[in-house]
């Protein structure tokens, strides 16, 4: 049963799914790294992105990969407004309040979706959805391969943004020392909102890449949010490389665990890893000390 002919495709499929997890987790880890908050609404924002891509395809005939160009700025704007207008104001600077406020936001978003779009599970039928590509002995669906490549490219772009631009420098300054950053003239509230917006934009990109191979429903965010937390904790809160590596590891673990021990075990394995990491090494691979 554990023939390489079965194992290798499963591992490659896991890697491609892991790249999407990584993309979702990159946004989460950026928000954590800068604002030091855990964004519970992250999964619901992914759901918003998925519905966006779905309706753009259904009503406007826009290919999901093309809708990337619209979804990334749209979700960036949504994230910016959310942090600037709601989360930043309501939380009074306390971590636990942020947790509660983002939880409240996610409840509202999810149930608005349930109210307007009903609980139906929707999928699109893209013409290339079942096209296969041969890699070594494995046949991999084309959308998964695209998602894998795009996720890596976006991670690279994000790294460039953080390392090379003035905005990136300002974000890193605020992440390290917000009082000092304020003193040298950085608008900290603006940088907070920018970081949250960029984090949300990652989710917009993930949504566009995910739609050709996944489904949409109001609760689809749940599938990803705990996985994304696991990835972030595994890689180390606030670490980009960690999120990327963590995403790939989790993707492969889920896929191989599911293949060998049954599908339930794949999900269970993620949560058990999560609990084990939190207990024994809460700093993950690349993280600093937990607050």
């Amino acid at each position: 049963m554990l023939d390489p002919v079965i194992l290798l495709p499963a591992a490659i499929n896991g890697l491609t799914m892991g790249a999407v997890y990584a993309l979702v987790a990159l946004g989460l880890t950026l928000i954590y790294g800068v604002l030091h908050i855990i964004n519970f609404a992250h999964g619901s924002l992914l759901m918003v992105g998925l519905y966006g891509a779905f309706f753009l395809y259904q009503a406007g005939g826009i290919d999901p990969y093309l809708s990337l160009v619209l979804l990334v700025p749209a979700l960036f704007g949504l994230g910016y407004i959310l942090q600037w207008g709601v989360i930043g104001r309501a939380s009074h600077g306390s971590d636990q309040n942020v947790l509660l406020v983002t939880l409240g936001v996610s409840i509202v978003i999810e149930n608005l979706a349930l109210y307007f779009f009903t609980g139906d599970t929707r999928t699109i039928e893209a013409p290339y959805a079942f096209e296969m590509v041969d890699i070594a002995v494995a046949r991999v669906p084309l959308p998964r391969l695209v998602a894998f490549g795009a996720a890596l490219a976006i991670a690279a772009l994000l790294w460039l943004l953080m390392a090379k631009t003035d905005l990136g420098r300002a974000i890193r300054a605020v992440a390290k020392e917000r009082q000092g950053a304020r003193l040298v003239g950085i608008d900290v509230d603006h940088i907070f909102a920018m970081s949250f917006g960029i984090g949300t934009a990652c989710v917009g990109a993930a949504a566009a890449l995910l739609l050709p191979m996944f489904y949409v429903s109001p609760h689809v965010g749940h599938v990803f949010v705990l996985v994304a937390f696991t990835v972030v904790v595994l890689g180390g809160m606030g670490s980009f490389i960690g999120a990327l590596l963590g995403g790939l590891i989790i993707g492969v673990t889920e896929s191989l665990g599911g293949l060998i021990f049954g599908e339930t075990f794949g999900q269970l394995a993620i949560f058990l890893i999560f609990i084990a990491i939190l207990l024994f090494r809460p700093t993950g691979f690349f993280g600093g000390r937990p607050s």
Binding site: A90, V101, L103, N111, Y115
Partner: peptide, 22 residues
């Protein structure tokens, strides 16, 4: 009686309470 409606209220209430009446 639409599913999710009361939960929308719960979510708004949570945010508003944390904001205005901690």
């Amino acid at each position: 009686d639409t599913p999710g409606l009361n939960l929308i209220f719960y979510g708004v209430l949570l945010v508003v309470m944390v904001r205005l009446m901690p």
